[in-house]
Amino acid sequence: MTRAFPFSAIVGQDDMKLALTLTAIDPKIGGVLAFGDRGTGKSTAIRALADLLPNINVVQGCPVNSERPSQVPAWVKTAKEEIGSTKTPVVDLPLGVSADRVTGALDIERALVNGVKEFQPGILAKANRGYLYIDEVNLLEDHIVDLLLDVAQSGTNTVEKEGLSITHPSRFILIGSGNPEEGELRPQLLDRFGLSVEVRTPHTIMDRVDIIKRRDEFDRDPDAFCEKWAAENANIRQTILESRTRLNSVTMNDAMLEICAEICVAMGSDGLRGELTLFKTARAFAALSGDTLIQNNHIKRIAPMALSHRLRRDPLDDAGSTARVERTLDAVLG
């Protein structure tokens, strides 16, 4: 694996970096959907995140990255007693992947060689407690999407085939990227993403020159470049950790809750998921900003990314969904 571009060295893309940071602070927000043109650094940012995140504790040899030995599923035979520390898993879901590889299936090798029936964990097991990244998410085959929806909802993966009956936890943050011009996403899948951001290429020449310079520097000598940005990356990591501890002390008064509800009603976003995400994201953002009370300005900053993909699509309304969210925000928040 080649070295990841340092997260802190990414020029611009504030929305995407913020969204990724917020989900790192509170994984319960759900995933991030990054939509935008080609060559805007979507993949770069997401792969960079892996490098940045603090390590997690896992039981050695456990295929589903269990935190404590008591959580290791019964079918796992390879788990050891000791607990090690490893990077937060970021697992790629390649397009064209088979359903068997996603959910896991009978281990053919073991069956062939030893004549035993044994479960071979798949991508969903590897992604547990980490990130599942789907590039070009709108090109994913429908039956794989169905699979993911089910697991993303329940947090557990159940495999019933060939006489096997296996269950294991699979809680992951779904990160998708894609280009809306190549086909739309099903609303059901859209709704599963907590946040959505639109990614555009920077338009100022200075930013663009910066990108080119840093990219060139990185390509020539990745190690030196990462070293140069290591301190910055450590800063962000530290901020994320501090925000995580602050998260539970952040409160929201009833007036703000009402405003959240009002925004969602005015926006016509379906279901309660919108409100929940709005609240959780605002809380994470407040924690990130070092505040303990959620304020109007927090809501204002994060509402577009929490809600813009949940609006009922109106084929005859030309305004972009972000514009619509902002319009409503101005009306409600004044």
């Binding site: 080609r38 060559g39 290429t201 020449i205 663009r208 020159v209 990108i211 310079k213 990219r215």
Partner: peptide
């Protein structure tokens, strides 16, 4: 570097990859 960036912009190439 600036020339390459500016020319790309003037030609309507927005992606950074080229």
């Amino acid at each position: 570097q600036e020339i390459l960036v500016c020319v790309a912009l003037q030609l309507g190439i927005l992606s950074m990859r080229p």
